[in-house]
């Protein structure tokens, strides 16, 4: 691969974004890629900006931090400002249609999807992270659907297995519908 792929999952604290990024990192590692994952360590358990970044490469990344975003999820308006100036023109940006009222603007591909609404319909708003992860993975062609599924299964607590499988399916569908 010529350039490293830079992915950011962002929103507010408590939305499970670091977990979602960890799942994607593990799935990508399973596929043989190298991943560098970083996040801010400020105490943001509820409400404040939360983000987790992945830099995907073959071999060790030159620079393991995100500086020009290729793939971005925004699950809360509070997270828009942190990424607005780092989005590449060819990027894919997935936002939550309900909570992100002023998404970033640019020549990149913006998909405003009902991520949190879908999660609530499925029975638990806490699985919006997996809906988003699935949608981004599908839109960006980041990794094989089954590898992602197996990784989510491995990382899901027992009570969340069915919910997360539903979330994975719904997110993928949302992405395919907007292609």
């Amino acid at each position: 691969m010529d350039r490293e792929l830079e992915i950011r999952l962002s929103g507010s604290g408590g939305q499970g974004l670091i977990l979602a990024a960890g799942i994607l990192a593990e799935a990508l590692t399973t596929e043989g890629r190298n991943v560098a994952q970083s996040q801010s360590y400020e105490p943001t358990s509820r409400g404040g900006l939360s983000r987790s970044d992945l830099v995907v490469s073959d071999g060790e990344a030159d620079y393991p931090l995100v500086s020009e975003i290729d793939c971005l999820v925004i699950l809360d308006q509070v997270a828009v400002a942190a990424s607005r100036d780092m989005i590449r023109p060819e990027a894919i940006v997935v936002t939550d249609a309900k909570t992100v009222t002023e998404p970033p603007a640019g020549s990149f591909r913006l998909a405003e999807l009902p991520l949190s609404e879908t999660a609530i319909t499925l029975g638990n708003r806490r699985i919006a992270n997996i809906v988003a992860l699935s949608a981004l993975t599908a839109m960006g062609g980041l990794c094989d659907r089954d590898v992602l599924k197996q990784t989510v299964l491995r990382r899901s607590p027992k009570t969340y297995v069915d919910l997360n499988m539903d979330a994975l399916h719904a997110g993928w569908e949302l992405a395919e519908r907007c292609v």
């Binding site: 990192a25 190298n34 991943v35 560098a36 994952q37 996040q39 360590y41 393991p64």
Partner: peptide, 10 residues
């Protein structure tokens, strides 16, 4: 530094 201390890498 903190970045490398908390960075996860493959």
């Amino acid at each position: 530094d903190e970045t490398i201390g908390h960075l996860l890498e493959t």
